[in-house]
Design a protein around this nucleic acid. Structure first.
Length: 498
RNA sequence: GCCCCCAUCGUCUAGAGGCCUAGGACGCCACCCUUUCAAGGUGGAGAUCAGGGGUUCGAAUCCCCUUGGGGGUACCA
């Protein structure tokens, strides 16, 4: 048994898609589980839509997820890695030209002079007659004279591969035996454009053969295309790899996950503050399960258990809520230092966007970790959670600051009393344990519910009704700023009611 | 239209003939904890295993049909 070689072959015609990441992950998992090699190849023959920005997004996105390839392009623009390169199709044109020549020489492919308009008209006619669209084979038996005539008209031919009738079958590793008749494939297949650039079904076959791919693991959307690939493989004299078609990731309406209906760009999830670990964990469980009731798995742990026979056949709806939950689980598993590291770029972004007025130091964030770690659904939520600590002034809404059971006057009285109580706690002993008892005592003495007093203080000092624990928050804010914000809130209240 | 694939709680899934009066997780609802928000804990609602036929002593699990859903059907990938 040759060593396993699998690949992911993204097209840089868009940012890294969730579905591509999942397919890449399953390929990586399969390779690792079986001691194989994982290859990345760029399918950039759609020159009109391919960009280097997308290429970068895909390469970096995969790397950020921890999905690393053994052979393929370098994410930072260095030389390709691996002995089967080049790993981008536009650098492999001579390979396709060579294969195309062989097919032509063997009369397995022929030039077709039909124009796109003619083909389009033919397709429409078939459709109107309620017949399946299919190339007629009009150019299949042209004489050299016919060809010369077309050439003299200035027509440039595409290259078509002859699709024979008759069943084509293969044993899919997740679906079992699949059989499709050649007659259902739409007629002879265009494998190269008039300008000579090769088309997907052709390049994928040539590349997989050249790169000695043993297992083609890809999305179910390629299932019906597989017979074309097998026919091409045979015509070229190549061995057939094993095929495994993964279930699709779906929109909530159960159609194939798309940008229109779902957030599909991996980069956006990363930018929202989802951890690569959580995304990988989540993606692995879309279509696969270890068969146990454990839910939290690292990439390394999944690698030990993964196999294709446990892959689901039906599509899976992408559930952001569940990803969010998993993300929280992973955030809570981070060490304090690690969390600070990962939070830094998000705080920097908040600063840049003007949502905070200064960048907190690592130490400032570190002391907050115990109170924020379990409150972060995503890294991106950090500004929302503790941003008030790093702004010059907070907006206090008079309508929000007055507790439900209180009126404005009580609130003013409460905040003034709280201010004096807090001021009485010396700067040296300004700690959470020192603040709570006197404030509780104050509430008790005045006959207030402690919760009401605390809420008034919370809103006055942070501008929000939901914050980390109050006393930790006041300590993080510092004595001077706490007192100043209490004063400001009182002033605001008086102004608001007067 | 034609070809192909699929089908267990709203969602992700366990289940590979008797262990299933179908288990777990997310979400949802209570309650506990509690200064808010989370996190955590406990409990609950939620699936006649799409429907109908078979096979079998016995079917969510095997077979067939129906229905439903999806994918493919380009000089896109």
């Amino acid at each position: 048994m040759p060593t396993v070689r699998v690949r992911i072959a993204p097209s840089p015609t868009g940012p890294l898609h969730i579905g591509t990441a999942r397919t890449a992950l399953f390929n990586l998992l399969y390779a690792r589980r079986h001691g194989g090699t994982f290859i990345l190849r760029l399918e950039d023959t759609d020159v009109a839509r391919s960009t280097t920005e997308f290429e970068r997004d895909i390469l970096h996105g995969l790397r950020d997820l921890g999905i690393d390839w053994d052979e393929g392009p370098d994410p930072d623009g260095g030389p390709d890695r691996g002995p089967y390169g080049p790993y981008r199709q536009m650098a492999r044109l001579e390979r396709y030209a060579e294969a195309a020549d062989r097919l032509r020489a063997a009369n397995q492919a022929y030039p077709c002079y039909c124009t796109p308009d003619e083909l389009d008209a033919e397709r429409k006619r078939l459709e109107a007659a309620r017949l399946p669209p299919r190339y007629s084979g009009r150019c299949a038996a042209l004489t050299p004279e016919d060809r010369a005539a077309f050439e003299s008209e200035g027509r440039r031919p595409v290259l078509r591969f002859r699709i024979p009738d008759g069943p084509v079958a293969f044993d899919d590793l997740v679906r079992g035996r699949v059989e499709i008749d050649g007659s259902a494939l739409g007629g002879d297949l265009v494998i190269a454009r008039a300008d000579g650039t090769p088309l997907y079904h052709f390049t994928v076959v040539v590349d997989d053969a050249d790169m000695a791919i043993t297992h083609v693991i890809r999305g179910e959307d390629h299932l019906s295309n597989t017979p074309k690939h097998i026919l091409l493989l045979r015509a070229l004299g190549y061995d057939e790899p094993r095929f495994a078609h993964l279930p699709l990731i779906l929109n909530p309406d159960r159609s194939k996950m798309s940008k229109r209906k779902s957030q599909t760009a991996v980069g956006e999830y990363l930018a929202d503050g989802f951890l690569g670990e959580a995304i990988v964990n989540y993606l692995a469980f879309l279509g696969w399960s270890p068969g146990t009731e454990e839910e939290i798995f690292s990439l390394a742990e999944i690698q030990e258990r993964f196999d294709l026979d446990a892959v689901q056949k039906g599509g899976a709806v992408f559930d952001r809520e569940r990803l969010l939950w998993l993300n929280g689980q992973w955030i809570r598993r981070l060490s304090a230092d690690e969390l600070v590291d990962r939070l830094r770029p998000f705080l920097a972004r908040d600063l840049e966007a003007g949502r905070i007025d200064r960048m907190p130091t690592d130490d400032e964030v570190l002391v907050l970790v115990p109170v924020i770690q379990e409150r972060l659904p995503t890294l991106g939520a950090v500004g929302e959670l503790i941003g008030f600590l790093f702004v010059d002034r907070v907006e206090v809404d008079p309508a929000v600051i007055v507790p439900k059971r209180w009126d404005s006057a009580t609130t003013v009285a409460g905040l003034r009393a709280a201010r004096d109580t807090i001021a009485a706690v010396g700067a040296v002993s300004y700690e959470a344990e020192e603040l709570e008892p006197p404030l509780r005592a104050l509430a008790e003495a005045k006959g207030w519910k402690a919760g009401d007093l605390f809420m008034a203080i919370r809103v006055a000092t942070t501008g929000r009704t939901a914050t980390p624990p109050l006393f930790d928050t006041l300590v993080a804010l510092g004595r001077d700023r706490t007192l100043a914000r209490l004063d400001a809130a009182v002033a605001r209240l008086i102004r608001g009611s007067g």
